[in-house]
Amino acid sequence: MKLGYARVSTQDQSLDLQKDALIKEGVELEYIFEEKVTGTKSDRPKLKELLSYARKGDQIVVYKLDRLSRSTKHLIELSEELEEREIELVSIQDKIDTTTAIGKAMFKMLAVLSEMERDIISERTKAGLESARARGRNGGRPKMSKEQLDHAIDLYETKKYSIKDITEKTGVSKAKLYKELSERKEATSNS
């Protein structure tokens, strides 16, 4: 069975172009999963619904690959999931069809390039950290002194200052302040 996925980024945009292309490709209208949500969001209910609906032997058809995934990494993860589940993928505009040998090869190439990109980023990061350490810089967040934390907690407990005021006065981050409050509360409740 051919299943379609159409997505636009905003409520104002129209899905008509994508839906027309999917129908021309042989997807029946009732099997087109439509979504109006930005591609940067990982929570896409209709995509999840499509993936749970799809079965072995089905084809997922998209107008373009960027409609399906928010990043190369996400696309590779999706393609691996589809391959494991024996579900084919067709991208109309990108001319990729995993039902063909060339389409499968293209996806494998994407996977290799994505892995290489991750490795290069990792190597650059490690080299940058080594270079910084050689210059006496350790990186990461500066250590928080006990005095700073105690001062932030004291200000918090006066109930006279907002969290923003406390973080600006003490240099203690909001997350660190809440973490410390939680740890102290837990320590007093356990004793």
Rank of each mutant, 00 (worst) to 15 (best):
Met1Gly: 11
Met1Arg: 09
Gly4Pro: 02
Ala6Leu: 01
Val8Trp: 04
Ser9Trp: 04
Thr10Glu: 12
Gln11Pro: 12
Asp12Pro: 03
Asp12Lys: 13
Gln13Ser: 05
Ser14Gln: 09
Asp20Lys: 13
Ala21Lys: 15
Glu25Val: 09
Gly26Phe: 14
Glu28Ala: 11
Leu29Lys: 15
Leu29Ser: 13
Ile32Arg: 03
Phe33Met: 00
Glu35Ala: 02
Lys36Cys: 01
Lys36Tyr: 05
Thr38Leu: 14
Lys41Cys: 01
Asp43Ser: 06
Pro45Tyr: 03
Lys46Ser: 02
Lys48Met: 00
Leu50Lys: 02
Arg55Ser: 14
Arg55Glu: 14
Gly57Glu: 08
Asp58Met: 08
Asp58Gly: 07
Asp58Asn: 11
Ile60Lys: 03
Ile60Ser: 02
Val61Tyr: 03
Val61Gly: 05
Val61Glu: 04
Lys64Ile: 04
Lys64Val: 04
Leu65Glu: 01
Leu65Pro: 02
Arg67Pro: 00
Arg70Cys: 00
Ser71Ala: 00
Lys73Cys: 07
Lys73Arg: 06
Lys73Thr: 07
His74Ser: 03
His74Met: 02
Ile76Val: 14
Glu83Leu: 10
Glu84Ile: 07
Glu86Tyr: 07
Ile87Arg: 04
Val90Arg: 10
Gln93Ala: 15
Ile96Gly: 00
Asp97Gln: 11
Thr99Tyr: 06
Ile102Cys: 13
Lys104Met: 08
Phe107Tyr: 00
Lys108Leu: 08
Lys108Cys: 06
Met109Glu: 09
Ala111Arg: 04
Ser114Asn: 00
Glu115Trp: 04
Glu115Leu: 07
Glu115Asp: 15
Arg118Ala: 12
Arg118Cys: 07
Asp119Phe: 13
Ile120Val: 15
Ile120Asn: 01
Ile120Trp: 11
Ile121Asn: 14
Ser122Asp: 12
Ser122His: 12
Ser122Pro: 07
Thr125Gln: 11
Glu130Thr: 10
Glu130Cys: 09
Arg135Pro: 06
Lys143Leu: 13
Lys143Asp: 08
Ser145Val: 07
Lys146Asp: 14
Glu147Pro: 08
His151Ser: 10
Ile153Pro: 00
Ile153Cys: 05
Asp154Phe: 10
Leu155Ala: 09
Leu155Lys: 09
Thr158Gln: 12
Ser162Trp: 14
Ile163Tyr: 10
Asp165Ile: 08
Ile166Ser: 00
Thr167Glu: 01
Lys169Phe: 02
Lys169Trp: 06
Thr170Lys: 03
Gly171Thr: 02
Val172Pro: 01
Ser173His: 01
Ala175Gly: 05
Leu177Lys: 01
Leu177Tyr: 00
Leu177Pro: 00
Tyr178Asn: 05
Glu183Trp: 05
Glu183Pro: 00
Glu183Ile: 11
Arg184Lys: 12
Lys185Pro: 03
Lys185His: 06
Ala187Cys: 10
Thr188Cys: 12
Ser189Trp: 08
Ser191Trp: 08
